[in-house]
């Protein structure tokens, strides 16, 4: 994340200012706010596509979880990797993807990140280190460990953040991966977005430990739980874990307690939770909170925030226009990329 405007940032009241903000810088903080808005508006627009029957298949919205995605990615550079989940739009934007190509993928167009072959659940941007969303719960976790093995072996200095939900903490892949990463001291941030429900089953009804971070003890790595709706808390934990990983200290398990205010997917009828609970979490909206804080600290004034939102609206509108004007893939290219073409194959 760039800190282009750090030098022109107004001074901030020192008392309430989280220490990590110094490291992120004023420009970085404004960019984080912009990305959180961009995620929110992307999700809302995607939802609108869906309910109007303009998109295909299903999708999983991360509205309410923006601080986790952006807070973790604040500690990463373009050469660092992430693996993502079925609820992956936010991670993708937080890692620097263009919303136009994401919308195009969402609409199954040739200009999409996966040329329309993947859809909402598989958006990836390897050029920016995003190894892809994943339709399998826990599917990305061992892959992240493999990417970390590459980073260690090839000495690239990269770290890997593996996002997964609370549901994945009961998958075998999670446990095998934590063990291997800790055993081999690999540079991984295991980031659990604990949004309280594995589809409809509440965390307490699925998991024998009180919090996912408790699992870390079993694999001899630090485990921390943070408020996933608090950008500062998430970013602080992510920077610490990334620093440790880059020093060769091995992996960290970071649990971010958060909430998805929408259903699991759009077919969710919300029978397993109450309106009151949803409203209570909406009151802790990570974006409003972050915006208020930046305003109080003088990093982004109300006017700054308004112009930032306007810019996000334009970016979303341009992205939608780009996607809608993009061609569908040709059926003549159905077989493309099942295998690497012989001519393109590197030895």
């Amino acid at each position: 994340m760039t800190a282009a405007r750090a030098e022109d940032a107004p001074p901030v009241a020192v008392a309430n200012r989280p220490a990590i903000y110094d490291r992120v810088g004023a420009g970085g903080l404004r960019e984080a706010l912009r990305r959180m808005h961009l995620i929110r508006r992307f999700e809302e627009t995607a939802e609108d596509f869906y309910v109007r029957g303009k998109s295909y298949g299903t999708m999983h919205l991360s509205i309410g979880q923006e601080a986790t995605a952006v807070g973790v990615c604040a500690a990463l550079g373009d050469s660092d990797y992430v693996t993502s989940t079925h609820r992956g739009h936010g991670h993708c934007i937080a890692k620097g993807a263009e919303v136009g190509r994401m919308f195009a993928e969402f609409l199954g167009r040739e200009t999409g990140y996966c040329r329309g072959r993947g859809g909402s659940m598989h958006i990836a941007d390897p050029a920016k280190g995003n190894l892809g969303a994943n339709g399998i719960v826990g599917g990305g976790i061992p892959i992240a460990v493999g990417a970390a093995l590459s980073a260690k072996r090839l000495r690239t200095g990269a770290v890997v953040a593996s996002f997964f939900g609370d549901g994945a903490n009961n998958e075998g892949a999670f446990h095998e991966s934590l063990n291997i990463a800790s055993l081999w001291k690999l540079p991984v941030l295991f980031v659990c977005e604990n949004n309280q429900y594995g589809m409809s089953v509440a965390f307490a009804r699925s998991t024998a430990v009180a919090s996912v971070a408790d699992r870390a003890a079993a694999y001899s790595m630090p485990g921390v739980t943070v408020d996933g709706n608090d950008f500062a808390a998430v970013a602080a934990a992510a920077f610490e874990a990334a620093d440790r990983a880059r020093r060769g200290g091995g992996p960290t398990l970071v649990e971010c307690k958060t909430y998805r205010t929408r259903g699991h997917s759009r077919s969710d009828r919300n029978r397993y939770r109450t309106k009151d609970e949803i409203e209570a979490w909406k009151a802790r909206d990570p974006i409003e909170r972050f915006e208020r804080e930046l305003s109080a600290l003088g990093v982004a004034t109300a006017a700054d925030a308004a112009s930032l939102r306007e810019a996000v609206e334009r970016e979303i509108a341009d992205g939608v226009a780009f996607a809608e004007a993009s061609p569908a893939p040709s059926t003549a290219e159905l077989m493309r990329d099942v295998h690497t073409p012989a001519a393109a194959a590197p030895r």
């Binding site: 976790i141 061992p142 493999g146 072996r153 991966s177």
Partner: peptide
């Protein structure tokens, strides 16, 4: 999975 991730990344 580690093998897949390593293969993906060089």
């Amino acid at each position: 999975g580690v093998a897949v991730g390593a293969a993906l990344t060089g």
